Amino acid sequence: MTAHRIGFLVWPGTKALTLALAEEALSVARQVHPEVSYERVVLHAETADAAADTPANAGDWRLPGQPWSAAGLEGLHKLFLLADEPPGPISAGLGSALKQLVRSGCMIGGLSAGVYPLAQLGLLDGYRAAVHWRWQDDFSERFPKAIATSHLFDWDRDRMTACGGLSVLDLLLAVLARDHGAELAGAVSEELVVERIREGGERQRIPLQNRLGSSHPKLTQAVLLMEANIEEPLTTDEIAQHVCVSRRQLERIFKQYLNRVPSQYYLELRLNKARQMLMQTSKSIIQIGLSCGFSSGPHFSSAYRNFFGATPREDRNQRRSNSPFELSSVPAERG
């Protein structure tokens, strides 16, 4: 069997974890199914200003691999660019080699800040790209032709991007599922004690202050209370009492910073939680509705349809039919 060649092009300063997550998924796949064959190639990138990109302690230890070369890139089926922080400009030679590699049919991707060199070369123009929430504004401003998303990872035609952290493992599981089937991806996730296989379209968990766009202490306290009381929602009066403001003052704060009243924000919070459970658990629709604070099935279904434009059952069935991980999807609803 001919080995499938996967390359990892590493920028200076990249931490071992980013590469280790990707390599571990491929290594475990081979252990689980010996017939799965990947040849892994680790290469080191250079920038137009390599000295500025190299951390002061880089001489102490660096990731294994060889300096990149045209010969090292030759014959790759997939190539992932790895960086933990947005790197500087790419050298002309490397940029030319990467563009030639794409023209030859290689599938290319960026992990964490590895999306930046791809975008610099115009290789993400018109493509969706998963960008870490810390860099979204900067990335969108610098590369308006790329479609930056808040997804864990994106696989758009022949481009693959992951926002960083554990999403790197999520993307590699998707690669295994695409190359060898969902059963293998599920076996690898079990071997790695991964709680569940996350889909690329799931959104990054952004810190509360960043999600709210405000550090107002009373607003933060109120939202934390809401998030802690999903199954048995508090009234607006109860929330105001807990955060030590009047109901009217609380409504003014929500209107000023979130452009909605507390009850509306709370409802959206519960509906988003319900949608997450629909896609990630095998609980029945009525169980999910009750656990998210809705008094009855019709009440839950009506509120869900008004907000998302589809009933819970329609949304679940649609997502399941589009998922590449059929074996891990929830069972069909009865009735």
Results as ranks from 00 to 15, higher is better:
residue 1 M to Q: 10
residue 4 H to Q: 11
residue 6 I to D: 04
residue 8 F to N: 05
residue 11 W to C: 07
residue 19 L to I: 06
residue 20 A to I: 08
residue 21 L to F: 07
residue 22 A to Y: 06
residue 22 A to E: 01
residue 28 V to Y: 08
residue 29 A to C: 11
residue 32 V to D: 03
residue 32 V to T: 10
residue 34 P to T: 01
residue 38 Y to T: 02
residue 39 E to V: 04
residue 42 V to D: 00
residue 42 V to N: 06
residue 56 A to W: 04
residue 57 N to M: 04
residue 57 N to F: 13
residue 57 N to K: 10
residue 60 D to S: 13
residue 64 P to E: 13
residue 68 W to P: 09
residue 73 L to G: 08
residue 75 G to M: 12
residue 77 H to W: 13
residue 77 H to C: 10
residue 79 L to Y: 04
residue 82 L to C: 01
residue 83 A to I: 05
residue 88 G to C: 09
residue 94 L to V: 15
residue 97 A to D: 10
residue 98 L to Y: 03
residue 101 L to F: 12
residue 104 S to F: 03
residue 114 G to L: 13
residue 117 P to A: 08
residue 118 L to V: 03
residue 123 L to F: 09
residue 128 R to G: 06
residue 131 V to H: 07
residue 138 D to P: 00
residue 146 A to K: 05
residue 146 A to E: 01
residue 149 T to S: 13
residue 149 T to V: 03
residue 153 F to W: 13
residue 153 F to C: 07
residue 153 F to R: 04
residue 157 R to A: 14
residue 157 R to Q: 05
residue 162 A to Y: 01
residue 162 A to S: 15
residue 163 C to I: 03
residue 164 G to E: 11
residue 165 G to L: 15
residue 166 L to H: 09
residue 179 D to Q: 11
residue 179 D to C: 09
residue 179 D to H: 10
residue 182 A to E: 10
residue 185 A to D: 07
residue 186 G to C: 04
residue 189 S to F: 02
residue 190 E to T: 09
residue 190 E to D: 13
residue 191 E to I: 03
residue 192 L to W: 09
residue 194 V to S: 07
residue 203 R to P: 00
residue 205 R to S: 12
residue 210 N to C: 07
residue 215 S to E: 09
residue 215 S to W: 02
residue 221 Q to A: 15
residue 223 V to L: 07
residue 224 L to F: 03
residue 227 E to H: 08
residue 227 E to W: 02
residue 233 P to Q: 04
residue 234 L to P: 02
residue 237 D to I: 11
residue 238 E to T: 10
residue 239 I to L: 08
residue 240 A to D: 04
residue 244 C to A: 02
residue 251 E to P: 01
residue 252 R to C: 02
residue 257 Y to C: 01
residue 262 P to Y: 05
residue 265 Y to Q: 07
residue 270 R to D: 07
residue 270 R to Y: 06
residue 273 K to M: 09
residue 274 A to L: 00
residue 277 M to I: 05
residue 277 M to T: 10
residue 280 Q to D: 11
residue 281 T to K: 01
residue 282 S to Q: 10
residue 287 Q to P: 03
residue 289 G to M: 10
residue 292 C to D: 05
residue 294 F to A: 13
residue 300 F to V: 08
residue 303 A to D: 04
residue 303 A to W: 05
residue 303 A to C: 11
residue 306 N to K: 13
residue 306 N to P: 00
residue 309 G to P: 01
residue 309 G to R: 12
residue 311 T to N: 06
residue 315 D to R: 12
residue 318 Q to E: 13
residue 320 R to K: 15
residue 320 R to G: 05
residue 323 S to K: 11
residue 324 P to C: 02
residue 325 F to H: 14
residue 330 V to H: 14
residue 331 P to V: 15
